[in-house]
Design a protein around this nucleic acid. Structure first.
Length: 199
DNA sequence: TCGAAGATTGTCT
DNA sequence: GACAATCTTCGAG
């Protein structure tokens, strides 16, 4: 297992971090065991001027973590039942983050399958932001923890060639829907939506 | 204190 | 392809 990515990795332009996270390994330890997967899809959320970013509402109890240190986990609850995992980027005062949207399951596949009984196959285990959170056991307990040293970590993995990285508008939002801030590894079979197909 | 909306998923038609 | 499930968050009253 390679070392966890340093805090400086996250302290750069958010689009850059989102792109560079493709190929990296997201890993979560729980009492039930360890589960991990390769990141194949991300989205960038750019701060208060990005209407689709939670921080567009300003600094609140919920968005407080976004104003914190780069490399911090931002985990939020949505639609009354789903958790979504993000990595905070840039410096304090610029509340931006990268949403992890899909993983290729690596370690702990059986554990993930138990947590996702409805998944039909390995591909269906973590090909969506709420699916991967369920598969890895990510919950609000992890909100605000450092991604370098906690139960939830991100490690260096494959380096994806630029020609295999695709950029599309973000999914599932109602504001700023035309901003090209979703990054995918086009060669992966584990995306939430197939590359080249509209949202 | 109340109401509306939400970075989704799974099921049904 | 359409829609229900389900509850936190936040702004308005």
């Amino acid at each position: 297992m390679c070392a966890a990515l340093a805090a400086s990795f996250y302290d750069r332009r958010t689009e850059r971090v989102a792109r560079d996270l493709l190929g990296a390994i997201l890993r979560c330890e729980t009492p039930e065991g360890v589960a991990s997967g390769r990141i194949v899809e991300t989205e960038a959320y750019l701060g208060e001027h990005d209407a689709a970013c939670h921080a567009a509402a300003g600094r609140t109890a919920r968005t407080e973590v976004l104003y914190g240190e780069p490399g911090t986990a931002y985990v939020y609850f949505t639609y009354g039942m789903h958790w979504c995992a993000n990595a905070v980027t840039r410096r304090a005062g610029l509340p931006s983050a990268v949403l992890i949207r899909a993983l290729e399951p690596l370690d702990g596949v059986e554990l993930m399958a138990r947590r996702r009984p409805k998944a039909r196959d390995r591909r269906d285990l973590a090909n969506g932001p709420a699916k991967l959170s369920a598969a890895l056991g990510i919950t609000g307990e992890l909100n605000g923890l450092p991604l370098r040293r906690s139960r939830l970590t991100i490690h260096r993995g494959l380096t994806i060639p630029a020609r295999e990285i695709g950029v599309t508008p973000r999914i599932g939002i109602t504001s700023a829907t035309d901003w090209p801030l979703r990054f995918v590894w086009t060669e992966s079979d584990f995306l939430s939506r197939r590359y080249g197909v509209g949202r």
